[in-house]
Design a protein around this nucleic acid. Structure first.
Lengths: 119, 119
DNA sequence: CAAACAGTTGCAAAAGTGATTGACTGATGA
DNA sequence: TCATCAGTCAATCACTTTTGCAACTGTTTG
């Protein structure tokens, strides 16, 4: 007696497959991982930071300056982004340069922004 | 004395435009909105729930049952998803049926999962 | 109208998150 | 080697979010 059997004449026939490889992909583990990534992107400060990196590679100081924020804060954010492989970095002398890890996440950002707009 | 001027010979020439309408889009407000959406998606429980809705429209009880979770919890999650227009709903008799608001967010989910996987 | 069912809401406890500050590491250059 | 600059790390605090439970609303059915 779990599923209500008397609710709707036609059982909500939206079973078309406007999904990609999605459907089954929502396994326990996939959800967990995807959720982590989404929540890392779910912060305006980190998003602003990524916005800068879309255009070019930058070192931490430059980022902090552009965002008008202090170094530890920025470094902290970069650490989080690093942990999810959203940004990668290289050291050059005293400086550490960060950039987006791949174009993949640019897409994600675009999608997110798109949804934000048309809403 | 803000931007370091001695850091790199060529100032990190990644200024190619593999961005869509992105670049400038990262305005204060756009960031804020996008961040909200991302963080709503940044929860494994909500993601699992959305996973169900990708395939079909479902009522709250069905969802709770499928997720093996209690009704108030599910209702609460749906409320959050509703607030960001990620799901829409219709009432039919005693039941309230939820579904994904548009195919747009399916894309978002796909992107998120894709990134989660190849990582 | 009363009973039963489907959902929602409110509230308090618990868990998670981000900002801040100060100390620490690593590289350069006098 | 010492001073300085670039960045990271760690600990604390404030704040937001989740969750779990009980009470409440709305709808159907007897």
């Amino acid at each position: 007696m779990k599923h209500p059997e008397n609710h709707t004449p036609e059982p909500s026939c939206e079973t078309d497959d406007h999904q990609g490889q999605l459907g089954n992909l929502l396994s326990e583990e996939a959800c967990q991982q995807a959720a982590t990534i989404f929540s890392v992107l779910g912060d305006p400060n980190r998003l602003r930071l990524l916005g800068l990196l879309v255009k070019q590679e930058l070192c931490v100081t430059e980022i902090a300056d552009a965002l008008n924020d202090n170094l530890p804060a920025v470094s902290q954010r970069l650490k989080v982004l690093r942990s999810e492989r959203i940004v990668s970095y290289r050291r050059q002398g005293k400086h550490v340069f960060y950039r987006l890890d791949d174009d993949h996440i640019v897409q994600l950002l675009q999608n997110g922004l798109a949804h934000a707009e048309h809403h």
